[in-house]
Simulated assay, not measured.
Amino acid sequence: MFDASNSPITIHYRPRNRNTYITITHNGEVCVRTPFKELSRVRRVLREKESWINTKLHEITKRVSYQHTVGETILFRGEVVELERFEFLKKKVEKDQNSVNIEKYYHQFYKNEALLTLPSRINHYSKKIGLVPSEIRYKKMRRRWGSCSSSGIVTFNTMMMKLSYEHIDYIIVHELAHLKHMNHSKEFHGLVRTILTDEKKLRSELKAMRID
């Protein structure tokens, strides 16, 4: 249970910010970006948000970890799946004891699945939202699920294939919406919401999911 008076927090001083922003990491760390230097003022803001913070922390403890370890299962499309289902991958993992190579096998597996699965879903939502990328790229990224450049190039993280279709679709719509709004303004989120009515819930869930 989070206690605003005593629980540990990570504070990032941001003098240009107008407001204080609170985020919860995937491992339950409370991070604060604030223009306030005084710890007492930060704690006061946290007390006001204590109920919200505890709700988020509870959600994180309930959520299935979006990590996989080399073994008998693999995370695929939001579910923990027996590795035996993917015989080719299973044979490679069992044959090679080199951890670097095994990591490459998993990455290649997710990339292949992304190339098979994502183009049709991207095309579907592109037509629905009325926005078309100048180019679509797929690669493993460490910090983002996707990105959109000012020239209209949309890049998707192949590790998306760990996620459920619900979250995959959110990432697709999110990046396509950036073709019109290169920011996270109210207009941007409003556009995403015209396609996915539960975008707030999906956005919150994705923030707590670790990319690895």
Rank of each mutant, 00 (worst) to 15 (best):
I102C: 11
K92Y: 05
H68I: 01
Q108S: 04
K111S: 06
I122V: 07
F109K: 05
K56E: 10
S99Y: 06
T55E: 15
V93K: 08
H174F: 04
S7R: 09
V30M: 04
E166H: 10
K180E: 10
K37T: 09
H178T: 07
L163V: 00
V30K: 03
N112I: 03
T34W: 01
T69C: 04
R210P: 00
S185V: 09
P35W: 01
G152Y: 02
S126C: 05
R143M: 08
V100I: 13
K90G: 05
I211W: 03
S151P: 01
T117P: 00
S7I: 15
I102H: 08
E187H: 08
K127W: 00
L115F: 02
R18C: 05
L202A: 12
R16A: 10
E84S: 15
T69M: 02
A114R: 14
H189Y: 15
Y110G: 08
F36D: 02
R44H: 11
V81W: 05
T10M: 12
R41G: 00
I22T: 07
D212C: 12
V132W: 00
S204Y: 09
R85Y: 03
S65H: 10
D169A: 02
K37W: 03
T158G: 14
K200F: 05
S7A: 15
T69N: 07
I211T: 07
S51L: 15
S151Y: 07
W145A: 11
K200E: 14
I53L: 06
P15Q: 09
P8T: 01
G71L: 06
K111L: 12
R33D: 13
V30I: 13
S149M: 02
G152K: 04
H68M: 03
K162W: 01
N123F: 00
V80L: 15
E187V: 10
G71S: 07
N101G: 11
T23M: 08
S147H: 02
M160Y: 01
R41L: 09
P133K: 10
Y21L: 03
K49I: 01
I22W: 06
K127S: 00
M141V: 06
V81E: 15
L196A: 01
K95L: 08
H68D: 06
P119V: 10
I9E: 09
P119S: 07
T25G: 11
E84V: 07
H178I: 08
A177L: 05
T73A: 02
V192K: 05
W145F: 04
E135K: 15
T117L: 09
E113H: 07
H26T: 02
E187D: 14
E84Y: 09
H124Q: 10
K162D: 04
L39M: 14
R33E: 13
C31I: 08
E29N: 07
H178E: 05
L75Q: 10
K37Y: 04
N157C: 12
N101M: 13
S120H: 09
S126W: 03
R193Y: 04
